[in-house]
Write a protein that binds this DNA or RNA. Structure first.
Lengths: 200, 200
DNA sequence: GTCTATACTAGGATAGAC
DNA sequence: GTCTATCCTAGTATAGAC
């Protein structure tokens, strides 16, 4: 709009753009997301978004790294809280589901993983995926079988978010699906999304 | 190009466009795919692609329905072959993996499931997902727990395809991941993709 | 650090011929 | 049934001011 808004230190501005970007990228995907939508959500001009990150592609990469950091941090915190008397998956699962509160984060990740064919983004996507796998294996101590079962469930969680299935459905098949996918975290999901549709 | 190529009955042309569309949509996703790339792959003009389906959106929807049919048909065939002395998941899994030979099909499905926010496509995506779930539950007789485990593994398979991880990697983590994800179908995957990268 | 204005391009869709 | 030519919009990126 007309006059410069809340002037802000560069680092803070960067963060606020990244947060907006994760939401928009999560909702629409990389290609369909517009830098203008991100700008509006961040409350700044489209040109300034580009100024700050150089290009839409660079912004997406920064956003992806940011989300990847959120996930790895969340997993590491969960791992630190674990004692070895119980399975660690519920803790990791809860950490993952809680990231859904960061609107867009999990679905942005899902979008990232569909971009393997992109010459710039593809390598980052592969590395990010393998990085998460390595944490599950080496830091959480999961066998490959347990790790893939956990990852599969995580992809399913993200898919359900991306589909925007209703968090509270009258359709019994949907309700049962959510129970089976979110398990002990189902109440957490309902709390996060209430009556609204699930989205990232 | 210049002069009309192989003139073809409308139905056959439709199919050949759908096949090309699945490949391009699978590779790039809905938004990034261009009707021109689809046209080139199908060997016809961009304008004719639009002519044939009305719009890019309509083409995507038709492609999605087509892929959904491939999946449901493949599952039903697998179910028909099952005897009840063994778990049915390996049969279903093999059927699913074989669809990867239809370049783009599985990853197109993955893209479809990220489009929940789209007013036109979203409802189709949700219905398609629930339709697959219903087959697993009602026709294959899986409990909801087994169905979600199977679906999660399927999403992981599609994600690995979308990431284009190499089918034969020197990286031990990747190799082990593929083994754990594809299980008894690992040889089939290698046969399908040989030395090439995995893609849809 | 942030804006307005604008240049430029890609790509979906239409018109009309054959 | 299929093409060429073209219109038109959306959206990224740049220039330059404050």
């Amino acid at each position: 709009m007309t006059t410069p808004r809340t002037r802000m230190p560069a680092a803070a501005r960067r963060t606020s753009i990244l947060v907006a970007a994760a939401e928009v990228f999560g909702q629409r995907g990389y290609a369909a997301a517009t830098t203008d939508a991100i700008a509006q959500l961040a409350g700044i001009s489209q040109a300034y978004v580009i100024r700050s990150f150089g290009s839409k592609e660079a912004l997406f990469i920064a956003t992806a790294e940011h989300v990847l950091d959120l996930v790895t941090d969340a997993f590491r915190t969960a791992i630190a809280e674990a004692d070895d008397t119980r399975r660690i998956e519920p803790l990791l699962g809860a950490a993952y589901v809680r990231l859904a509160a960061d609107r867009g984060a999990l679905v942005t990740l899902l979008h990232l993983f569909t971009l393997g064919q992109d010459p710039r983004i593809g390598p980052i996507a592969r590395a990010g995926f393998l990085r998460i796998l390595a944490i599950l294996r080496e830091e959480a101590g999961l066998s490959m079988e347990r790790a893939t079962a956990f990852l599969g469930n995580g992809m399913l969680v993200s898919t359900i978010l991306g589909l925007q299935l209703p968090a509270e459905s009258e359709d019994p098949a949907t309700a049962e699906l959510l129970e089976a996918t979110f398990r002990e975290n189902t109440p957490l999901v309902r709390e996060l999304f209430g009556g609204r549709d699930l989205d990232g």
